[in-house]
Design a protein around this nucleic acid. Sequence first.
DNA 1: CAGGGTACGTACCGATCGGTAACATTGTCA
DNA 2: TGACAATGTTACCGATCGGTACGTACCCTG
Lengths: 206, 206
Amino acid sequence: MSRSKSQPSPETPETPRRAADRIRDTAFDLFYKEGIRAIGVEEIVSRAGVTKPSLYRAYESKDELIAAYLRDYDQRFRQRFEAPGAEHPDDPKAHLLAYLDYLSKRASSDGYRGCGLTNAVIEYPDPAHPAHQVGVESKQALRERLGEMCRAMGAYDPAELADGLLLLIEGSYVSGQAFGQGGPARVLGDTARRLIEASLSRPTET
Amino acid sequence: MSRSKSQPSPETPETPRRAADRIRDTAFDLFYKEGIRAIGVEEIVSRAGVTKPSLYRAYESKDELIAAYLRDYDQRFRQRFEAPGAEHPDDPKAHLLAYLDYLSKRASSDGYRGCGLTNAVIEYPDPAHPAHQVGVESKQALRERLGEMCRAMGAYDPAELADGLLLLIEGSYVSGQAFGQGGPARVLGDTARRLIEASLSRPTET
DNA sequence: CAGGGTACGTACCGATCGGTAACATTGTCA
DNA sequence: TGACAATGTTACCGATCGGTACGTACCCTG
C-alpha cells in the first residue's frame, strides 16, 4: 500500500522531488532571505539534500542560478502585482491601490526582506553582471506598467505620477527591511492615494 | 631643504598619509562603489598601498572596519542633509526641499550608487550584524529628523508625512542605482512638493 | 650610543569559495 | 532482461577568504 502509487509520476510533486527542483526552491529561499552573496553553493546543495554536481548539471554556474532565481522572482512578482486586477477590471486606480495596500501591510511587518530584484541590483552594482541586468529589466518593465496604469487613470502627467509611485514602492521595499514592524511603509497606501489625487488634475502653481 | 619641514607634523595631510588613514579612505571608496561583501581586505590594503597587519592594527576585524565606514558615511550624510538649512534658517520646508532637489539630481545621474547605509542594511539582513545595526540606527535618526521638520512646517499628521517623504527618499536611493540617468528620482522634488502641499491641511475624504 | 616605543612589512594559517573529473545508481523502454 | 540515458555521489581542484605570528626599520629620549 505504501508504494502502490507510482513513484515516477511527474505530476505528483511530493516532498522529495527532483534534485534540480529542490535546488531551485532552496536557492530561492536562501538567496531571498539571506542575500545572494552571503549564500555559497555548498550551503544550497546541503540544505536541498543534494550535492554540488547536481547543481552544476542543472545550471552552468552560480551566476546562472542567480539569474534563474531572479527570473523566478520577477514572475512571482508580476503575479502578485497583477492579481488584484481581477477584482477591479477596467479600474487601474483601484487595482493599483489594492496592490499598494497589500504591499504596505507586508512591508511594514516584521522579518520583511524587501524585493529580491532590488536587493540583487544593490548586491551586484556592476551593470555587466546578470543579476544586475535581470533586476534592472524587471524594474524597467514595472516603470512602464505603472505609466500605463497612470495614463489609464487619467493622470495629468502619467510618467511623472508613475515615477512618483515607483519611488514610494521602492522606498517601501527597502525601508521595510530597515524598520520592520510599524515602519514607514505603513503609510504607503494613504500616501499613494494623496499623491494620485493631487496628480489627476493640472498641478497647482505654488 | 627637503626635510627642513618637520615630517612628523600631524597637521600636514600629504598624499602618502598614515596607513590607517589610507585604509579608511580606500575602504570607504571601495565599499561604497563595489559593495561591502564584494570587497575583501586584501583588495583594500593592496589598493591603499599598505599591508594586512596595518589594517588589523587599526581595526579589530573587517566587521569593525565596515562599521567605521558606515559611521563615516552617516556623518557625511548628515552634513549633506543639514547643509541647505544654513541658507533657509527657520524654514524647514525650504531646507528639506533644497536637499531633495539636490538628491533628485544626484540620484538621477549616471553611476549613482545610492545610500551606503541603505545598501549595507540590504547586504547584511541579519539584525545582529554591526553593519545592519549602524544602518538602521541612522535610518531611525533620519525618520525622527524628518518628523521634526514636518511638525515644524505645520503638517496635519507630521509622522505620516515624514514617513511618506522617507519612502520617496529611500526610493530615490535605490531606483537611482537601477535606472541611472533619467530615472524616477528625477521627480523627487516635484513629487515631494505635491505631497507636502496635500499634507498640510486636513486630509480630504475620498 | 644604548634602549624602547611606534609603525610597517614578510610570510603564512585554516576555512571556504566556485567548480569539476570520475564513478555509482537509477528509471525507462525495447 | 539488457542497454542506454539521466541522475546522483565521492573526492578533489586552485583561488581567495578573514586573520595572525614574527621580524625589521625608524625616531625620540637618555
